[in-house]
Structure formats: C-alpha cells, structure tokens
Nucleic acid binder design. Structure first.
Length: 590
RNA sequence: GGGGUGGUAGUUAAGUCGGUUAUAACGCCGGCCUGUCAAGCCGGAGGCCGCGGGUUCGAGUCCCGUCCACCCCGCCA
C-alpha cells in the first residue's frame, strides 16, 4: 500500500471480499474491550464495519485499539475475514470483520455529549448545539442523502424536458404584498435596502419574456415570519416557469416529475393522472383547501334538512345563512364520552362554538341534542348522510367558514384515531379553481389568494372592477396526504390586465410603477403567455422520509426563535459595520 | 403578540406535604476480562437544581419576574 487512500467505505465489504487486504477510515462508533481482543465498530456515512484487534495477532494494533475513544477518527489496515458463527444480521457488512494489522488514530475525540445512535436520547438543544455530531446519526444522514438524490432526480427529469437551470438574484427589491421581508442595508446607497427573495417570482416571469421558455431553479427563499414544525425562515423551492403553458401542461410536468422521484426513491409507479378537485368542493367536503384523501369520510351539508328543527342552535344558524355540516363516522361505540370531549375541543379550538354528536342506535339516538330532533328530521339526516345504525354523527353549526374548517379538523382527528392516515400510502390531488381574491378586513381591501401575478378564468375578468371576490383564479395546488406540496398558476402576461389587478389590490398607479414598473414594461415587449409552479423541497423530503420536523431534513436548521444554536447567529455587529451601512440601533430595542 | 409543555451531574431522567449529605441509568476515570454487537463485571469521581428576586427557621420543591427550547394560534401573496 503505497498510497494512504481508503480502499473501501465502511459499507462496502461483503463475504465475497474475504481475504482481501483493505484500508478503511472512519469514526469509532463503539469500542468493546475484551481484554485479549478489542472490537471496534467503524462508521462512515455508508455503513458500519467491525474491526477486530487481537493481542496475539497484532500486539501493536491491539494496544492502540484499547485506548480509542468513541467518535475518534481511525485508520485501519487489515484483512477481511469471515465472521463464521459470529455474524451480525443487523449490519449489512455483518458477515465479515477486518482483522487489524496496523491501526492509527488520525484524530482523537473528547467524550461526546450524546451517543451517536438513531434513537438518540439527547434533547434537541444539545443536538443542535453539536449539529456535526447529530448529523453523524445514520437516520439524519439518510435524510440528507435522500434530499440530494431527490434534487438530482429533479434536475435529471427537468433537464430531459428541456428546462434550463438559471440562477436569480438573492439581493432583490422589497415586495409590498405577502410575507415580511428580510432586509439587507445598502452600503453604497445610504438608507436604501435590498430584500432577500420570498420567491424568484418576477425574475422567472422576466426570463419568460426573455425567451427562456422552460426555466427551473432549486431556489432558496426567505420569509421573516414565525416558525413552525414544518416552517423555517429560509427554505427551498423547486421553482419552475413555462412559456405557452396551460394548467394541463403543468399537471403533466409535475406529475411526471413526482413519478420520477417516487420511482427513484421507492421504485414505485404512481397512478396518473392525479385526481382533481375544485376548491369549492374541497372546502365543502373537507373543510380545507388541502384535503387528506388517504381516507374518504366527506362532510355533508344538512342545513336545509334541519332549518326548521326544534334544536334551536341548528335552526338559528340556518336562519342567518350559516351552515350545518355533518360527518358520518363508523363504529360509534368505540368513541367514549372522553373521546367525544376531545373531538369537541378540536372543534372549538378551530373556531366552532361546539360540536353536536349523535349515536344512532337501533331504537333511539343518543347524544348531546338527540332529544331535540323529531323522527322526520332524524330520517332526513340519515337519508342525506347515509348514516345507519351503529354510526356516529358529528355536527357543527356556524357561519360557513368556521363550521367547515372546524369539522374538517375533527375529520382529520377522527382519521388519526381510526388509523386511516397510513404512512406509506400516497394520495395525490390537484386542487383548482381557487378564488382570485379574499377580503382582508384589517387592510379593508381584497388581497390575492395566490399572488398578484395570477391570471383569472377568462370569463371572470369582467368582474374585476365590480365583484372581484367572485373571480376564480387559474391557480392550482398539488396536495399530498393533506400537505400542500406546491402551488402555481397561469400568470398575467398583458400590461393592461396586470395594471387592473394591481389597482383592484389597492396599489396606486404610482406604487405599481415604482415596485413593478419593470414587469409592466416588459409585458409591452412581447411577453408570451406563461405559467409555473413551485414545490416545497423541505416538505417533500419530510413526506418522503416521514420526518416529523423540518429540522430533520435541513443540514443546519434554525430554532423556533430563528436562531442557529451552533453558530449563535444572529449576533451583534461591530459599530464600524453599522456606520458603513448608515444604520443606528435605537436604544429602546435592546 | 397570545396559549400550552419543559429546563436537576457530560447526557437522559426521578425527586412525595417545604425538612438529614439531591437519586438512578448511560457516559467519564481506575481495575478485570479473547467473540462482543451502544459488550460484560468490580470500584471511583462528577451538581450555579436555567437565571434574578421574594416568602420561610429552612426552597430543587411555594410566589413574582426573566431567559432558552419545543408544540399550537395569530402570521406565512
């Protein structure tokens, strides 16, 4: 061995390699000292290989091995040997071990704050402080390896479809709509600021005007909003834009891309095309715009059936144009009073004033308000919902929005409870025909449901100045198992239409010109019709890996207060730096 | 901004009604041990009970404030 290069990784060697001379390097994952011999589990990101150092065979290697501390970096030269009757079925390399001839500690490690194993017992604070140790854990490493594979599959697929990968600026202009921007002060222009992109939206539209008819980018995006288990201030999108696009073309492309990913990751053929559902149906049947269709159990509107009911709550809601909506659940008897109280809490937490429940018995109905319903009403409810003896009916009466949202949340809880939200089941869905705008009571104006560059269903355009809230957008979301994987739209490509939409959003002509003048002008120089979509890569990896936190699919994530525990960022800066940037920190904020 | 849960040895946790020297496991240190699989056995060291006040003869324990982490609501075109 003239060269100090490893011959194999710690996941490579098999029984067929027995007898070979090899050189391995890796981390000591465990050191088991038996007196006359020492076993070392040598780990790298490819796997674990057992090293054996025997006093009688290689005294020097043996004495070195006895002193090896966990997580030290070790170089081993030895021969691959059959483990015979002592094989370890839990390791891919478990049929063999390396009989060490020479051994060297390349870098000794201090005692580690936690043991590097998959079912780690350290708190997340400790793990994030020592992220480099946490990332040595095979489960976490596996997530990042999968992430890399998905990015590669994405690039290969899009490249084959004629897409160009084009980078767009990280230093952009602040945006008036949407999330809070991260700002970057300009040194050269005192008092002026860049913003980090919330998405490359306007740049990719400009690329369409420039003639790059198929663009994509695995793009980092930044939004200065509070964090969640599935939300980080910086995140990654698979961002695409296509000239001469139709929704059908976008569906085909995204379905093809996801099918390629699922084939590459699970060797699974996705069923295509994905089902589609109008927004209005999603809201009515599932109480949200991203229904989990791994199970059915749609909600059913029964307002008309109970409008004249003796149960005042139902009758009153019906009288004031509210909605009474019902969920039929099988096997009522498996739901205890405590379960039902729990579901009631889910309903009230989600904006409902309460949850009525009825257990349909052979003779009588039992439940909170059963005595207020007459036999005809009960029969009508059964006819409408299809409920039979032994079923449970959960009912919320309120204004349409809160009633459906609350019962939709109850539906998901019931799905969990009945084990209907199975891991490993993949239920894709396109939701389409979103409303173009919704009313923002705080701002006292309509705001774009998707974003201000979204076009509307052509026949709705004339409603823009009169009834904008009635307009349907040419927008689409791709949903997987109740999670929004991504969303997009066919864009506006005409200056006059874009100007009218800005106006409807309450943007003055002057503000529109200042913020988006370049886009409006570009539309006057031959902008092709175009559309696009962006998929959340972090969430996609979460779903593929089953990770419960977005932090487990990002190499260096932030805590819920947007700090990095390892590097202790953000941090104070030198006064000179502030001076360069023409900034002053106000006393009250510190 | 609001609600909830948690913070005790290097790590993970226990700690009763406020009362003796704050426990345990793993890790660490020393010793034994040639077929372990996060080896095992014997012995030992190791504490700002998150931080700051308060109540009390006495506080890990009760009260007030504060910091940090996680989950949720608001927010996230």
């Amino acid at each position: 061995m003239t060269e100090d290069r490893r011959t194999h990784t710690c996941g490579d060697l098999r029984l067929a390699d027995a007898g070979r001379d090899v050189l391995l390097m890796g981390w000591a994952a465990s050191v088991r000292d038996h007196g006359g011999c020492v076993f070392i589990n040598l780990r790298d990101r490819y796997g674990i290989t057992q090293i054996k150092a025997d006093q009688t065979v290689a005294p020097e290697a043996f004495s070195l091995a006895t002193g090896i501390k966990m997580e030290s970096v070790v170089r081993v030269h030895g021969r691959v040997a059959d483990r015979g009757s002592n094989r370890n079925p839990n390791l891919a390399t478990g049929e063999i071990e390396i009989e060490a001839a020479f051994l060297e500690v390349l870098n000794p490690a201090k005692p580690v704050p936690f043991t590097i194993v998959d079912d780690v017992d350290a708190s997340e604070v400790t793990r994030l402080n020592y992220r480099y140790l946490d990332l040595r854990r095979p489960v976490l490493a596996k997530n990042l390896i999968l992430r890399s594979k998905v990015a590669r599959l994405t690039r290969e697929f899009l490249d084959a479809q004629g897409f160009l990968e084009i980078e767009t600026p990280i230093l952009c202009n602040p945006t008036p709509e949407g999330a809070r921007d991260f700002l970057v002060p300009s040194r050269v222009h005192p008092g002026d600021f860049y913003a980090l992109p919330q998405s490359p939206q306007t740049y990719k539209q400009i690329l369409m005007v420039a003639g790059f008819d198929r663009y994509y980018q695995i793009a980092r995006c930044f939004r200065d909003e509070d964090l969640r288990a599935d939300r980080q201030p910086e995140f990654t999108q698979i961002d695409m834009e296509v000239s001469f696009a139709t929704p059908e073309l976008m569906y085909e492309l995204i379905e093809g891309m996801l099918a390629t990913i699922w084939k590459g990751v699970f060797d699974l053929d996705l069923q295509r095309p994905f089902p589609r559902m109008p927004y209005s149906e999603a809201m009515e049947k599932y109480g949200c715009d991203k229904p989990d269709l791994r199970f059915g159990m749609p909600m059913v509107t029964i307002t008309d059936v109970v409008a004249a009911s003796g149960f005042k709550v139902f009758a009153d809601v019906a009288a004031r144009d509210g909605v009474v909506t019902a969920l039929r659940v099988p096997d009522a008897e498996s739901f205890s009073r405590k379960d039902l109280d729990g579901l009631t809490k889910v309903a009230t937490d989600n904006g409902a004033k309460g949850l009525a429940w009825f257990k349909i018995g052979a003779e009588e109905w039992s439940g909170s308000a059963a005595k207020f319903l007459n036999p005809e009403e009960k029969q009508a409810i059964r006819d409408r919902t299809g409920a039979g003896v032994g079923d449970l009916l959960l009912v919320v009466a309120d204004d349409a929005g809160p009633a459906r949202q609350a019962l939709g949340a109850v539906r998901l809880k019931v799905g969990d409870r009945l084990g209907l939200r199975e891991a490993g089941k993949w239920s894709f869905l396109w939701v389409e025909n979103f409303p173009m705008f919704e009313w923002d009571a705080g701002e006292n104006r309509p705001v774009a449901v998707h974003h201000p560059f979204t076009s509307c269903v052509p026949e709705d355009l004339d409603l823009l100045e009169t009834q904008p809230l009635k307009m349907r957008a040419r927008a689409y979301d791709v949903i997987l198992n109740g999670t929004e994987l991504g969303g997009g739209s066919i864009r506006i490509h005409r200056r006059d239409v874009q100007a009218r939409v800005f106006k409807a959003l309450g943007l003055t002509e002057e503000a529109a010109k200042t913020k988006f003048g370049f886009l409006l002008e570009a539309f006057e120089y031959g902008a092709p019709p175009h559309g696009g979509i962006a998929l959340g890569l972090d969430r996609l990896i979460m779903l593929l890996t089953g990770a419960s936190s977005i932090r487990d699919v990002i190499a260096f994530p932030k805590t819920t207060s947007a700090t990095d525990l390892m590097t202790a960022s953000p941090s104070a800066v030198d006064p000179g730096q502030l001076r360069d940037l023409h900034l002053e920190i106000s006393k009250s904020s510190k």
